[in-house]
Design a protein around this nucleic acid. Sequence first.
DNA 1: TATGAATGAGGCTTCATTCAT
DNA 2: TATGAATGAAGCCTCATTCAT
Lengths: 208, 208, 208, 208
Amino acid sequence: MSERLISKIEEKKKHKKDLLFNKSFELFTTKGFSKTSISDIVSNAGVAKGTFYLYFKDKYDIRNKLIAQKGQDICEKAYNEVQARDDINSLEDGVIAFTDSVINQFSKDTIMLKFIAKNLNYGIIHTAIVDESITNKSGFNIAKLYQEVKEKSDVKFKSPEVMMYMIIEMVSGTCYSSILENEPVPIDELKPQLFDSIRAIMETQKIH
Amino acid sequence: MSERLISKIEEKKKHKKDLLFNKSFELFTTKGFSKTSISDIVSNAGVAKGTFYLYFKDKYDIRNKLIAQKGQDICEKAYNEVQARDDINSLEDGVIAFTDSVINQFSKDTIMLKFIAKNLNYGIIHTAIVDESITNKSGFNIAKLYQEVKEKSDVKFKSPEVMMYMIIEMVSGTCYSSILENEPVPIDELKPQLFDSIRAIMETQKIH
Amino acid sequence: MSERLISKIEEKKKHKKDLLFNKSFELFTTKGFSKTSISDIVSNAGVAKGTFYLYFKDKYDIRNKLIAQKGQDICEKAYNEVQARDDINSLEDGVIAFTDSVINQFSKDTIMLKFIAKNLNYGIIHTAIVDESITNKSGFNIAKLYQEVKEKSDVKFKSPEVMMYMIIEMVSGTCYSSILENEPVPIDELKPQLFDSIRAIMETQKIH
Amino acid sequence: MSERLISKIEEKKKHKKDLLFNKSFELFTTKGFSKTSISDIVSNAGVAKGTFYLYFKDKYDIRNKLIAQKGQDICEKAYNEVQARDDINSLEDGVIAFTDSVINQFSKDTIMLKFIAKNLNYGIIHTAIVDESITNKSGFNIAKLYQEVKEKSDVKFKSPEVMMYMIIEMVSGTCYSSILENEPVPIDELKPQLFDSIRAIMETQKIH
DNA sequence: TATGAATGAGGCTTCATTCAT
DNA sequence: TATGAATGAAGCCTCATTCAT
């Protein structure tokens, strides 16, 4: 009986935390982070100011957890989509399919793109990955994925980390303004050239 | 006589504006933008608060002009270095030489790297390029450079804008953490792979 | 059986109250009263916030009871020490011996000195003396002591209350900074002069 | 002309600072220090919140300066009164006359007595004495006074600092409750006994 | 032009207290 | 009795901006 009581309370707490998460995301993406105050967040969530501090240290805390959370959601979805396909015959195909999924998700949800791109930086990602409350939520973990892919691949690359890095930066940088402003070209035009470039970069890195 | 008087006043005005520019840059790069107040800036510059508003609209205004200014300084220096070399036989060589110069400048001045990277975004660049007070300062102009290079080249590319974009994003993204944190590898290790990738991307874009 | 059950519960209650007492004292003397919150107290005591309000009205309540308690402990100890001596031949000797014991106790426990001195005031003492939960704890009672001493003495004084008052204030005031800061002189140097002054004051008050 | 302008502005500033001083004193003595907020102070003074911070660091700052200020005012007045008398034939007479003046001042202004007694401590006095904005206000200086008296006296004392200390503590301690609560006796009854005790203490300290 | 005193909105955070469980 | 989530008033302080001089 007392167990059920506890779980009920825990559920309520979870609900309140999620409420704060969702309303914060809403406000950060519409008003912008620095123009969103704690007052805005709590009045939107319909809770008292003090309640915010029961769940988060400050505005930066909730932002960082939000970024990590959303970032992982996107990667997890992309991973699952790649797994479900049966036309992936090489690592190149896999990387491109993964990229394609991420681009598509961002194209459909430009608010998310703006939020993540504006706020992403390595410090945040790192501390977030360490935060168990996020990584434990689902079984998925971006670090595990990377390891898994590397081991499965039968082709060897000179420096896989550098290669992935170059690809990620190229993709994220160009897509940001392509999706949001159609500059230098709309995303549909950009994609084939991007994929060609990914293959070209991977080719330079192969060890024969 | 009155002309000289006017020019003297103009000089003084210029002096104060420059002072505010320099001190702002100092503070933005040490304390960070959002933690730097107008009070900080003026007390460091030794002028009154009201004076700030005589020259700039607000804190964002001075930051944007600062970024554009510093960004152009770097490009101009890189351009001049490339011009002075006599071992540039192709557009690829030119792009790589230009990139190399920029990377070297940032390696020597990581504060600048942090400032520009953290604040750069297309909106700022665009409004800044339009601002005559910056572009007119020296004869150099990044837009003109681009045109010039494109016309000179005897090889044609499918989509030069896209190509340059992809290269720029790949370079800037990877160099940031490579220079500042040696991640994923130190900049000296990164460079050859980056240059290989640049050549590879350009190759995919060539029209034969 | 039910009696033992009740006494067990009573013991538990007593235990919790004592726990709150002890942890409060610890925190008040380390962090200071105003910087110690109820949250601090209960989290240190390992009980829930609501529990605090089961035993005390508020932070002031627990502080006042603490002061009275600790003050009485000190007086009781001093009284017992004086009783145990056989070299006390006059009221002057008794007063000085009592004073000496209190000073020694404070010298060994400066935290207590700070706490009591900083918080002592007549309102608190008075309400605390009235509080039965404190005075009943042991048989000792400072008011009874005073009466007892006065009756036993064969010398008469003009105004014993005033005399004791002057002595107490002189002693407590000077000892505070002498013990804590060695100002104006260390306590060992101060003592003989203090005792001379006590004797001198008492002499002016004697009725011959 | 510009000089007069500056002095006019300085006058206005002085006026505002004094306004804050006065209103703070009023509130601290009626509501109590901890229950007086900055908001209370500024709304009573009729200035904006920010203005407070132009003149004082925080609530503690204004309180400490207030104590030092008021304390010095009292001592200065007592000193002048002693100087004006022609029946002072010894150091004992001087100390007693000074004490008498201070007691009389506090008897007439019990609010001041409460404020100073509750807040006085050596740290505050010390930092206040160092603060030039207070000590320079008038020529008077408590440290100078002490030196002056010591040099003039033709009788020598074993340890003048300790002696003064004991006297001060005895006087201040007993007077506080005597003036405010008539306990243990009204101040008029206390005085003669206090003065006897002062003479007795000084006697024990004389070097013959 | 230049100054800097004054403003006051608005942000962040703490914390005593309550009350449903 | 005991709990601790929730409250929201209340405090402190900063800072961009204005305007009289």
